[in-house]
Amino acid sequence: MKTAFKLDAHPRRPRPLLSEPPADYFDRLPTRVMSRLPGAAAAAPGWRWLAWLTPALRTGLASVAVLGGFAASFYLSGSPGAGAPVAATARLDAVPRTELVGYLLTSGARVETSDLAVLTAADPGFAQGFLHASADELTDALDAQPTEDQTYL
C-alpha cells in the first residue's frame, strides 16, 4: 500500500514545471506593451488630446476633417476657373467692335473676309459700320465658300 502524498514532502519549486517562454520573450515584451499603449509612444505631443476623446468622437472628427478638406480643395480649385471667363468676357465687351475687327484683320489671326461675310449674312446691319464691302461683294465671298460635299469628298 502506498503512503499518502504530502505536499510538504514534495520538493518545492518556485513555479510549476511548465515550458519556458521563448528565449527573447522578456526582452521584447516591454516594447510590445509600449507600442500598444493608447497613443502614448506614437502620438506627437500636440495630438495627445485626441487620446482623451471617445472613439465615436474621434471618428466624427476625422469625418469632418476629410469632408472639410474636400470642400476646401473644391472651393480653391473651382473659384478661379469659374470666375476667369466672366471677367474676360466682361473686359472683351468693353472693346469697340471696330477695334476687334481691325485687330482680327491685321493680326494674322487667319480671319478672312469670308468669315466676316458669314457674320453679315446672320446680321445684315452688323458689318455696315466697319466692313467696307458692298452686299454684292459679300454675296460673292459667300458663294466662293466650298460646300460640305466638296469638303468631305
Partner: peptide
C-alpha cells in the same frame, strides 16, 4: 518621463506578472 518610467515598471514586474498569469491559464 512618463514613458521611460512605465518602461521601467514593465521591465521590473513582467516576469512576476507573466508567471502569475501563466500558472492560472497554463498556455503561453
Amino acid at each position: 518621463s512618463r514613458n521611460l518610467a512605465f518602461n521601467q515598471l514593465v521591465r521590473k514586474y513582467q516576469r512576476k506578472v507573466y508567471w502569475h498569469v501563466r500558472k492560472m491559464v497554463v498556455d503561453h
